[in-house]
Structure formats: structure tokens, C-alpha cells
Design a protein around this nucleic acid. Structure first.
Length: 333
DNA sequence: ACAAATTTCCGCCATG
DNA sequence: CTCATGGCGGAAATTT
């Protein structure tokens, strides 16, 4: 590898967008890759093109739209990397034969193909995961296994790579994936720089329960707040008190509360409530488990407090939430 | 659905 | 003097 090659590199990335895709899934890689460009003073760069599966602008699941640079019907440059985001729309998109063929061909022509969260269903429909080790969110594991029995699913993996196929579990894992790719392309030092560069923004913006292990482990000053966060996330079912958390952190309640809030942008107990709510939402979206059990599995005292939490934060009761957002089952490919 | 009880959160201030 | 800490009180949120 010549010096010239390592110093100047150009990688062409396709980011697929379909109606109902998860915006964050491509926003993460986009920002991470863009950071490489600015941190290297444009010596290294990713050229990122959004590619629509339909003509015209594409609405993400959050309602924010994207006008794709290309569509799958247009001629495209050779892509080094293809990234497929997740989102509720994936189930419709992966039923589209034209898209499946496009993805299969592009994947074969490129160096690597990645799917974020349930984007893996599109890879499956394109026949790219048979015999491959893949991962996805644990709540989708059963569905994925049913749809693509030949895939070797590894649950409990935040990120899996099998030769040229990359898959990730959660939405914010897209940043981890991007960092892994940056490390492959430009080395660990660059990946670390990007991670640190993004860290500030990410932790400000998220404040939610999604945490990427890579990023949290990178928080250089091992803040006690981080430990408390992890502790809560790993013990969502236990009954937590500010007092007990403070004791665990060897801080006064006042300090924990203050430090936590300044570092995370959300107060400790609100953070916990948010984490539990996020978990419950996933259950409602992906299972038919009775509310009583959803509540129990997410650390709520009972279906009553689950209901209150939903009404409070989401202004909708769990039953209605499930009715509106329950993911459609996937027909076996 | 309502009131009472509990818990969290935050400004203010003294302390080191 | 600045900065981080933690006790106190009461408003606000949340549970019982």
C-alpha cells in the first residue's frame, strides 16, 4: 500500500431510500462519513449518493422527505459500498422485485453491502444472506428466521460482518457500523477521531435509550454518570430510586442529578422512564404479548403505570399505540 | 376520578 | 476568584 494511496482515497457509497425508511439510519453514516472528509481536510472522502427505490422524493418514516440523487431506474456509478436503512417501509420495499434485483446486482459489483436494523430483510429478499452470519434487533429475530431460514442469525450482536455483508441491530448502531467501515478504509486513528468528533453531538441529541457500545466505551473520562446509565439500562426491571443510584455512584442525590442532567441533557429518572418506554414501544410494535406482560418485562409496575406512561409521553394509550404501529408480518420469501 | 402521599427536580447558597 | 459539591425547601411530577 503506497503512501499516496493511504493519504488520498475516494469511496463511493450508495444509501438506499424507500418510503418509510428510518431517517436516522442514513443520517448517522452520512454525518460520520462527512466527518472523515472534514477531519482529513478533504484528503480522504466518501462520495455519498442517495438512491430511491421509487421515482421522485421519498418520505422517511418520520415524515421528513429526501430527494434522492438517483433512483434504481437510473444509471449509477459503480458503488463501493451499499447501505440499506431499516424502517417500517422495509417490508413493502423488500417485496419489490425490481429493487431486489438492483440490490443483488449492486451488491455483487461492489465491495460491501450493509443493512441497518431491519434493513436486513431487504438483503434477505435479494438473496444475499443465505448461509451468512447476520444480526438484527432481537425482537425481529424470530421473524427473520422464519422469512430466511438459510440465514445464520446471531442475536445479541450489535454488529455482525460476514465477508462483504454487514448487519447491525439497532438504529443508532448505524454509527458503529460507519465507524467500523471508516476504520477499515482509513485506519483506527481516523475512526477514533470521528467517534470523538461525533460523540458530543450524539449524546446531546439522543438522550434516549439507544446507546452504541463503541461510543459509550469511548467516553474518555469514565464519568460516573455513564456507569449509572449502563446500570439502569442493564437492570431496567429493577426498582430504582434516585437515592439508591446516588449511593451506587458515591454521590449525593443533588450532584448525581445535576451532573447527569448536564452530561445527558435529561434527568436520571426521566432517562430511566424513557428507556422503559422505548422498550415497551418495541414490544408493542413487534409482539402480541398482553399488556400486563409487556409492562412487567419493561420494568413497569403493572399495565396501569404502563398506560399512564404512554398517555403522558406519547399522548396515546398502549392498546391504540399497538393498533397503529404493530409491524406487519413478513411473508416468507 | 380525586385527594393524599411520595418522589423527583432545581434554584439558592454555604462550604471547601 | 472559579469551580465542584451537597444540604435545604418548595414546586412539579408521579404514584398510591
Amino acid at each position: 500500500v503506497s503512501l499516496c494511496e493511504t493519504l488520498m482515497k475516494h469511496v463511493t457509497v450508495a444509501m438506499v431510500v424507500f418510503p418509510g425508511f428510518q431517517l436516522l439510519d442514513i443520517a448517522g453514516p452520512k454525518d460520520a462519513f462527512a466527518a472523515v472528509c472534514s477531519l482529513s481536510h478533504a484528503a480522504c472522502e466518501y462520495e455519498m449518493l442517495t438512491v430511491g427505490t421509487t421515482r421522485g422524493s421519498v418520505l422517511s418514516s418520520s415524515g421528513l422527505g429526501v430527494v434522492p440523487d438517483r433512483t434504481i431506474f437510473d444509471p449509477c456509478p459503480q458503488f463501493d459500498t451499499v447501505i440499506v436503512p431499516g424502517g417500517l417501509g422495509i417490508y413493502d420495499a423488500s417485496g419489490d422485485g425490481t429493487f431486489n434485483r438492483w440490490l443483488a446486482a449492486r451488491s455483487r459489483a461492489g465491495r460491501r453491502t450493509a443493512a441497518i436494523s431491519n434493513g436486513v430483510f431487504a438483503l434477505g429478499a435479494a438473496g444475499l444472506i443465505d448461509g451468512r452470519k447476520v444480526t438484527t434487533h432481537w425482537l425481529d429475530v424470530a421473524r427473520l428466521a422464519a422469512a430466511f431460514p438459510a440465514a445464520r442469525i446471531e442475536p445479541d450482536n450489535i454488529y455482525t460482518k460476514d465477508r462483504e455483508i454487514y448487519t447491525t441491530a439497532g438504529a443508532t448502531a448505524s454509527v458503529d457500523l460507519s465507524l467500523a467501515m471508516i476504520e477499515e478504509d482509513f485506519g483506527a486513528a481516523m475512526a477514533l477521531d470521528v467517534a470523538k468528533h461525533l460523540l458530543v453531538h450524539l449524546r446531546r441529541a439522543a438522550g434516549q435509550s439507544q446507546f452504541s457500545p463503541l461510543l459509550t466505551s469511548l467516553a474518555d473520562t469514565h464519568s460516573p454518570v455513564l456507569a449509572i446509565q449502563q446500570y439502569m439500562l442493564e437492570n431496567l426491571l429493577d426498582k430504582h430510586r434516585l437515592a439508591s443510584l446516588a449511593k451506587r455512584a458515591c454521590m449525593s442525590e443533588r450532584s448525581l442529578s445535576r451532573v447527569f442532567t448536564t452530561e445527558c441533557g435529561i434527568s436520571p429518572m426521566r432517562f430511566l422512564a424513557q428507556a422503559r418506554l422505548d422498550m415497551a414501544r418495541r414490544y408493542l410494535e413487534n409482539t402480541d404479548l398482553p399488556l400486563k406482560y409487556v409492562a412487567r418485562r419493561c420494568g413497569f409496575d403493572g399495565s396501569e403505570s404502563l398506560r399512564r406512561a404512554f398517555r403522558r409521553r406519547l399522548d396515546i394509550v398502549p392498546i391504540d399505540y399497538r393498533h397503529r404501529f404493530r409491524s406487519p408480518p413478513v411473508n416468507a420469501a
